[in-house]
């Protein structure tokens, strides 16, 4: 699981100069999108992509840099969403407290981070398949708990009418503002992960992934480092969870049901867990497939609900042909093209 990141430390050119042209183009497309895309694309497709991408990014951070495959990320996101509904305003007036946004957002992130940290503290003592098992077990427990608990989580029906605050006179649930809100959050989370991956904390986490025993022999408290990684990932997942509850305007146990938990894993793996951009690619593929495949399937005379079949087949194909996700396919294609155009080795040009 080698991480192909920018390895140049030491003397570097200005950071602006180091941004490849592809990123400028991507940034331009994303920023101008509201000028040429419809509300449905902005709110439903892109908004959802960014949200799922953020949650899957938190898994990528743990799995790609820390070597810990955690299935708790969706539950952590849902926890943050629930906290927004409980401490903020919702249609369930007897539970919701109606606190102002500047209070309930930090509370939501804090509670979700605490939840993720506790799960992490339990999970880091295990490795490989056992980490997956223990986080899956806690995710299931969280799902059933929210479904059965009516005093706090309002059981089966959850909370409705949970909307973002009217800040600066903008209705943030309108397509264009919501698009920019999710784009901004996704960009910040992405940048944070990229930055931290080269900071001492992130480097040490990759050291722990490669060789925990040696890290201890270099003076690092490996357990504490892993738990802290869960905390950091939980904050990112929590941001995704808050956006998710605003987008749906409601939250219910199904938000963090087992299918949703698995979807996050599928998104991260399909996109590629080697690099922070992978989860966003995976999320875009997932959202496009689940949004448009019903039309495609009905056009072929199949039932529209079979879109999971397409996603499942896509997942199988990726796992079989490119264990490092779509990103890995792209990188191999680039490497091959570079080889082909090399005059010494024959081929094109």
């Amino acid at each position: 699981m080698a991480v192909v990141e920018d390895r140049r430390a030491g003397v570097q050119p200005m950071w602006v100069e180091r941004i490849p042209p592809v990123w400028w183009a991507l940034g331009l497309i994303l920023l101008t999108m509201p000028a040429w895309a419809g509300d449905f694309i902005l709110f439903q497709v892109m908004g959802w992509t960014f949200i799922l991408g953020i949650i899957a990014l938190s898994l990528m951070f743990l799995a790609g840099y820390g070597g810990m495959v955690s299935l708790i990320q969706m539950s952590v996101a849902a926890m943050a969403g629930y906290m927004v509904a409980i401490f903020g305003a919702s249609g369930v007036a007897e539970i919701s407290m109606g606190l102002p946004w500047w209070l309930y957002i930090p509370i939501a992130i804090g509670v979700a981070a605490l939840f993720g940290t506790i799960v992490g503290a339990l999970a880091v003592r295990t490795a490989g398949i056992y980490t997956i098992m223990i986080t899956l077990a806690i995710a299931s427990a969280f799902f059933y708990f929210t479904r059965q608990n009516y005093t706090i989580f309002n059981g089966y029906s959850g909370f409705n009418l949970v909307v973002p605050p009217q800040l600066f006179g903008v209705d943030w649930r309108q397509a264009v503002p919501f698009y920019y809100l999710t784009l901004g959050c996704a960009a910040i989370c992405y940048a944070a992960v990229v930055y931290v991956s080269r900071a001492p904390f992130g480097l040490a986490l990759q050291g722990v992934r490669d060789n925990p025993r040696r890290m201890a022999a270099l003076g690092f408290n490996v357990t504490a480092h892993r738990v802290a990684a869960y905390t950091f990932a939980s904050v990112i997942a929590a941001i995704g969870g808050i956006l998710l509850v605003w987008q749906n305007a409601q939250i219910a146990p199904g938000t963090a049901g087992i299918p949703a938990v698995i979807d996050i894993l599928v998104i991260a793996v399909v996109g590629g867990i080697g690099r922070p951009i992978g989860p966003f690619i995976g999320a875009l593929i997932y959202v496009v497939l689940s949004t448009f495949s019903p039309d495609l399937l009905t056009a072929f005379g199949l039932s529209g609900e079979r879109f999971n079949l397409l996603i499942g087949l896509g997942f199988l194909a990726v796992v079989f042909f490119s264990p490092d996700g779509v990103l890995g396919l792209w990188e191999r294609w680039q490497a091959r093209r570079a080889r082909m155009s090399d005059p010494l080795k024959g081929g094109g040009a």
Binding site: M1, R7, G207
Partner: peptide, 14 residues
């Protein structure tokens, strides 16, 4: 026992 995914500089820096 080294960190195979990292560079020499990163290893020593850690």
């Amino acid at each position: 026992l080294l960190f195979n995914g990292l560079t020499v500089a990163d290893n020593v820096y850690l």
